[in-house]
Nucleic acid binder design. Structure first.
Length: 862
RNA sequence: GCCGGUGUGGCGGAAUGGCAGACGCGACCGACUCAAAAUCGGUUGCCCGAGAGGGCGUGUGGGUUCGAGUCCCACCACCGGUACCA
């Protein structure tokens, strides 16, 4: 035997191996040599930045983490083998509610809970064998990190992108804090599940809506590199609508009111006007009306405000509203439109008011039918929109002459009767100079007319709202602003940053609707930097999504005390080449990170506009049909699984379980199958008897072909994230090698060594501990994790003979072994002569033959 | 409602328009063993047949093609996103 079995890896008597001993042995060596640190300026290899979405340190890792970080490591190790200088850092998203809630429960400091959990995570990641660059660790709850959140906030403030406004906000009554729109899921708090209510508060916002167009348009760049699903979700979330702003006069009121409409073509069909009950305009209009109206409006407003989002969003809910006894004037025809307040119009979309065109909008129609308001059809959806424009005869006043006589097909689809709004294509009627135009042309014409009259213009509107970043909680980044006695708001001076959190001692963290920091009396007291007069700090902290919106840049110099990140390093490493994490961040985190990246670009700090060049979304790990979680009690303990079955088996089992993007049922994950496979691989390495200097070309060709096909195919499979297929192919290679050893070329054949070495190198992506052990058994020093990829020999990828299929009328009737380079005529001759073909034909005549040499011959008999 | 995705053995899943079910789990049979575990070998889509062989088969119905899991049309089921966004 050319090798010495490792002394410190205990070898059990029955021919298996001790996975845990091997794991510990190689983890110690990695810790000592630190082989996965990213190369610096002197490193001339091309760079790859591989990043897993950083974890939140609640408790220990679980199988969801095991999945995600196994994939991250596959990608990082792959690119290292492929000759890249790989950056693969790890950090912790360590501010946030769970730490605070745990602290409240135990009367402890959230810091202690957080950092104890982080220590456990670090230990677990070491035990998992993840190939991180451990020199770049960051925790967002360190002052050295959140100091730069404060820097970022102030830069946004300077650019007008951070601002305060009073507005109805999402309020979680359980967590006693506001929530961003993105954190409300089905009307409930994303974290605790409590029903969210609206509350009018003055809060800090980031003006992400200024970037709506770029956030939408730049998604085109990501097409093909991000999952289609995520791109779609972001597009829907931003929700751009194109149409027009139209201005209406209101009787008895100075100035005009603007509404947004995607259907300005239907302006002649407007029969009433609706304002959101919780808008300032509604309050103003009601105030200027009769006492009776004021009282009815007040009652209505209160009933609307009592509703939760869930009630409000329930479908098929009857329309409600109150008539304000005021009138808007249609700018195109001077018609008086009664103004209603109704909750189907939202205060924070568009301008909080709409022109109602019941004939062509379902919601307006439902309302009109509920309150008996007129319906006026202005688009004939029965008229053809392609082909020639029908000639419409006009009388002397330019009004179309009704041809009369026959009943118009429109009567049968009259929305007032059917209750179905006509939203489709058609031609304009009852619309003055627009008559006869198609919907599309009419929209363009109306916009022109409004612009000419000064009563409107083309406009866009977005579903996306500004990002509410204030939080009434303790465990987050303090907002670095000062409220002066005379009501100004000024930034904390740069030299006083970081503005660190006060000691938790003596603070009441329990949720009470205002920030716990407000109770830190001494901490709150400061001075107006301009006047020296006493002033107060802002008691709120930032949404933790601010922390995670730029952390990938902080890894490039995690301990830099002079700047958030060095632009030079950022432009060398970023954007992230492979970003890996769960689809639950499809909107929140990814949208915010994209936004902040664009702001940094505008500031001239980075040269790219998108943070993540490619995105891999892994599915979830489920147990009993639901996501593993402590509260559900369906956890598979990570720490225990590292001992048995061990890190390698867990990683292989997960990678093999199915496609990366699909959910995995833990019941379907076979760690015993993975263990068996790993033991077989180990035994193959054990059985190799040749020396490392054998000449592979002298080895068994059949086995060499299997090895080289895998060497050729694996890179493409990894890049397509078909990790399960790569593992399957590795199993095939190990099986083929086993066969060669036992009943073929024998253990001394160079092809057996070559195959074992290739197995170790590729297995490193999934089972790095065993791969290192095999590499050592095979007689090599150094880490297999750093071995360059072995390129396939192209001559071994070409087969001498192939299996050719003969089909008769679409059914396979025979297979032939033929030379790979056979020509069509020869192949057809062989096929016609084949005994099984003759038998299947049973005398029928071949009427057509299609030959695709060397793979297929297809005969037809009719 | 709107937008998107997915339907393949008992199970997880493979399959550039060219032998469907790779690889594995499970199950069954056998070897080794006093026995069990581990390991090794074999069988395993369904139906008919002792066998050779034949028929059927990728949610359903149609279509394109010499040839369809794959492309097109319609439908069904399930999953995800979003939802009074004017």
């Amino acid at each position: 035997m050319s090798h010495t079995p490792s002394l410190d890896a205990a070898v059990p008597a029955e021919g298996g191996y001790d996975a845990y001993a091997i794991q510990q042995k190689w983890q110690a060596r990695w810790a000592e040599k630190d082989p996965f640190r990213a190369g610096g300026d002197e490193d001339t290899r091309p760079r790859k930045y591989v990043l897993g979405m950083f974890p939140y340190p609640s408790g220990d890792l679980h199988m969801g983490h095991a999945e995600s970080y196994a994939y991250v490591d596959v990608v990082a190790r792959f690119w290292r083998h492929r000759g890249y200088n790989v950056l693969n850092p790890i950090g912790w998203d360590s501010f946030g509610l769970p730490a605070e809630n745990a602290a409240i429960q135990r009367g402890a400091d959230p810091r202690e809970w957080t950092y104890a959990n982080i220590d456990q995570h670090k230990k677990s990641f070491r035990e998992y064998g993840s190939s991180y660059d451990w020199s770049r660790i960051l925790h967002t709850s360190d002052p050295g990190y959140y100091r730069w959140n404060q820097w970022l906030f102030q830069r946004l403030y300077e650019r007008g992108l951070a601002y305060r406004k009073q507005s109805p906000v999402n309020w979680c009554p359980n967590d006693q804090t506001v929530l961003a729109n993105e954190q409300v899921v089905d009307g409930r708090c994303e974290r605790c599940g409590a029903e969210v209510v609206k509350k009018k508060l003055t809060q800090w916002y980031f003006k992400i809506t200024d970037y709506a167009d770029r956030l939408l348009d730049d998604l085109n760049q990501l097409e093909g590199f991000w999952p289609q699903k995520v791109i779609r979700m972001q597009r829907n979330w931003i929700g751009r609508s194109v149409g027009a702003d139209i201005e209406f006069e209101i009787e008895g009121r100075e100035g005009r009111v603007t509404v947004f409409s995607t259907r300005p073509d239907t302006l002649h069909g407007a029969t009433f006007f609706v304002v959101a009950p919780d808008s300032d305009l509604a309050a103003e209009l009601a105030a200027g009306s009769s006492t009776a109206v004021r009282m009815r409006f007040q009652d209505y407003l209160e009933s609307v405000q009592r509703e939760t989002d869930i009630e409000r969003q329930s479908t098929d809910r009857p329309k409600t509203g109150v008539f304000l006894e005021r009138y808007a004037i249609n700018p195109v025809n001077g018609e008086r439109l009664p103004i209603w307040a109704a909750d189907y119009v939202l205060a924070d979309y568009g301008h909080g008011a709409v022109m109602a065109v019941p004939a062509h909008d379902q919601r307006d129609l439902d309302f009109a039918r509920a309150f008996d308001l007129p319906v006026k059809v202005v688009v004939d959806t029965t008229a053809p929109v392609t082909g020639a424009i029908p000639i419409i005869e006009l009388d002397d006043d330019g009004v179309p002459i009704d041809p009369g006589g026959e009943e118009s097909p429109l009567d049968s689809i009259d929305p007032a009767k059917t209750g179905i709004a006509l939203t489709g294509e058609g031609r304009m009627i009852n619309s003055g100079t627009l008559d006869g135009l198609s919907k599309r042309n009419a929209i363009a014409r109306m916009v022109e007319q409004l612009a000419a009259a000064g009563t409107g213009r083309a406009a866009k509107s977005y579903r996306l709202r500004d990002w509410l970043i204030s939080r009434q909680r303790f465990w987050g980044t303090p907002i670095p602003m000062i409220h002066t006695e005379d009501g100004r708001i000024v930034p904390v001076p740069e030299d006083q940053l970081p503005l660190t959190l006060p000691d938790v001692q003596g603070l009441d963290l329990a949720p009470k609707g205002t920030s716990p920091l407000g109770g830190a009396t001494e901490w709150m007291q400061t001075v107006d930097p301009e006047t020296g007069e006493p002033a107060l700090r802002d008691p709120d902290t930032m949404d933790t999504f601010v922390d995670s919106s730029w952390y990938f840049l902080r890894f490039l110099a995690a301990s830099d005390e002079t700047q958030a990140f060095p632009p030079r390093e950022a432009n060398k490493w970023a954007p992230v080449d492979s970003y890996i994490g769960g689809v639950e961040h499809a909107i929140l985190h990814l949208l915010y990170a994209r936004f902040i990246t664009k702001v940094l670009f505008d500031m001239g700090l980075v040269e790219f506009t998108e943070p993540f060049s490619s995105l891999i979304n892994q599915g979830m790990v489920l147990l009993d049909g639901s996501k593993m979680s402590k509260s559900k009690g369906n956890l598979v303990e990570f720490a225990a699984s590292m001992v048995d079955p061990g890190a390698d088996a867990v990683r292989v089992a997960i990678a093999f379980a199915g496609p990366v993007e699909d959910d995995i049922n833990w019941e379907d994950v076979s760690t015993t199958g993975a263990q068996k496979f790993l033991a077989r691989a180990w035994r193959v390495a054990q059985d190799v008897t040749s020396d490392p200097d054998v000449i592979w070309a002298e080895g068994d060709t059949a086995l060499r072909r299997v090895t080289h096909r895998l060497l050729a195919d694996a890179p493409g499979l990894v890049e397509q994230t078909k990790f399960n297929v790569v593992v399957a192919r590795l199993m095939e290679l190990v099986n083929a090698t086993r066969k060669a050893i036992d009943s073929g070329a024998g253990p001394a054949d160079p092809a057996v060594r070559e195959s074992a070495e290739a197995t170790a190198m590729i297995l490193d992506l999934f089972a790095p501990h065993l791969a290192e052990e095999m590499w050592e058994i095979l007689g090599y020093d150094g880490f297999v994790g750093l071995v360059p990829w072995r390129n396939a020999d192209p001559t071994l990828l070409v087969e001498d003979t192939v299996t050719s299929v003969v089909q008769i009328d679409g059914k396979v009737r025979a297979t032939l072994q033929v030379p790979a380079r056979i020509d069509a005529a020869e192949l057809e001759r062989l096929a016609r002569a084949d005994e099984r073909v003759v038998r299947s034909l049973a005398g029928r005549e071949i009427t057509r033959a299609v030959v695709r040499a060397p793979k297929v011959v297809s005969f037809s008999t009719h």
